[in-house]
Amino acid sequence: MLKILLYGSARERKILEEALQKPLEENKISFSFRYLSNPQELMENYLYNRYYRLIVACLDGCTAYVIKGNGSKHDYYIAKGTMSFPPTSEEINEKLMRNPELAGFYSSGEYTVAHRGLTRKIPYEEIDYIHSDDKKTIMYLTNGDKEIISKNIGKVNDEINRRYFAKCCIGVIVNTRNIHKIHRSEKNSRVIEFKSGAKVLMTEGYFEKFAEAYSMSVSRLADLKALDD
């Protein structure tokens, strides 16, 4: 569960809570809020307390945020910055929801691969894309590894959670949560680039259907602006 500390006046905390609650729920993040208005208590008891991984505060008319490390890293503050007040859904998604340090709080699910009596569970966030290879399917992972699945891609497509995956061309399904950017390559194609640096080609004929699936996956039509870059 993601423990979040909201700092500010009662009115400011209510505004921050209302802005954060919807994207947290849409991304299926289990969370709880704690409220604080005493600056001395914030500095003495909470700013350096790793129990609250995310602090969101109203300061000087802006929304300030701090994302803390999980205790296994040398850097105490992983990310910090400001947003407008109240923060827009675009700011929350870009600066908080898509921050990799909060990925562990996503309950996105996993895919189970069985091979010679052994099973391996692969979290969705570790999958970049899935590619058809005749009667088998190859799963390309964010760390550069591949997983060969003894099923055709149609079967795999039925088994994955389509909230996180979308078809971009014949025989290729991509993880929309791991997309970094999409840009035009040639007249009849576009390139999907993942956060890991991997790339796949999307044919223009699939663009409209992909855009619809992508917008449903990320829960915000505003993200579609990336498709036109």
Score class of each variant (00 low, 15 high):
Leu2Tyr: 08
Ile4Tyr: 02
Leu5Cys: 03
Gly8Val: 09
Gly8Gln: 06
Ser9Arg: 07
Glu12Cys: 03
Lys22Ile: 10
Glu25Ile: 14
Glu26Tyr: 04
Ser30Tyr: 05
Phe33Thr: 04
Arg34Phe: 09
Arg34Glu: 12
Tyr35Ser: 00
Asn38Cys: 04
Asn38Met: 07
Met43Asp: 15
Asn45Met: 09
Leu47Val: 01
Tyr48Trp: 10
Tyr52Val: 04
Tyr52Cys: 03
Ala57Glu: 13
Asp60Ala: 10
Gly61Arg: 09
Cys62Glu: 14
Thr63Asn: 09
Thr63His: 09
Thr63Asp: 05
Ala64Thr: 12
Tyr65Ile: 09
Val66Pro: 00
Lys68Cys: 07
Lys68Pro: 09
Gly69Trp: 08
Asn70Ile: 10
Ser72Arg: 10
His74Thr: 10
His74Cys: 02
Asp75Thr: 08
Tyr77Phe: 14
Ile78Asp: 11
Ile78Arg: 14
Ala79Phe: 13
Lys80Ser: 13
Gly81Asn: 06
Thr82Phe: 15
Met83Gln: 09
Met83Ala: 07
Ser84Val: 04
Glu90Tyr: 03
Ile92Glu: 02
Ile92Leu: 13
Pro100Ala: 11
Pro100Arg: 11
Glu101Ala: 15
Gly104Thr: 12
Gly104Arg: 14
Gly104Tyr: 11
Phe105Gln: 01
Gly109Asn: 10
Tyr111Lys: 06
Thr112Ala: 12
Thr112Ile: 15
Thr112Asp: 03
Ala114Pro: 00
Gly117Glu: 03
Gly117Gln: 05
Leu118Asp: 07
Lys121Asp: 02
Ile122Asp: 05
Ile122Glu: 05
Ile122Asn: 04
Glu125Asn: 14
Glu126Ser: 13
Glu126Pro: 00
Ile127Phe: 06
Asp128Tyr: 02
Ser132Asp: 03
Ser132Asn: 05
Lys135Ile: 06
Lys136Asn: 11
Lys136His: 06
Thr137Arg: 00
Tyr140Arg: 05
Thr142Pro: 04
Asn143Gly: 10
Ile148Trp: 05
Ser150Asn: 14
Lys151Ser: 12
Lys151Phe: 10
Ile153Gly: 00
Lys155Glu: 14
Val156Lys: 04
Val156Ile: 15
Val156Tyr: 05
Arg162Val: 01
Tyr164Arg: 08
Phe165Trp: 07
Phe165Thr: 10
Lys167Leu: 03
Cys168Thr: 15
Gly171Val: 02
Ile173Cys: 06
Val174Asn: 02
Asn175Trp: 06
Asn178Ala: 12
His180Trp: 14
Ile182Leu: 06
Arg184Met: 10
Ser185Val: 00
Ser185Arg: 12
Glu186Trp: 02
Asn188Gly: 00
Asn188Cys: 00
Asn188Ile: 05
Ser189Gln: 05
Ile192Phe: 01
Ile192Asn: 05
Glu193Asn: 02
Phe194Trp: 11
Phe194Glu: 08
Ser196Phe: 15
Gly197Gln: 12
Val200Ser: 08
Met202Ser: 05
Gly205Pro: 02
Tyr206Met: 05
Glu208Trp: 01
Glu208Val: 14
Glu212Ala: 08
Ala213Lys: 12
Ser215Gln: 03
Met216Gly: 01
Ser217His: 01
Ser217Phe: 01
Val218Lys: 07
Ser219Thr: 11
Leu221Pro: 01
Leu221Trp: 04
Leu224Tyr: 02
Asp229Gly: 08
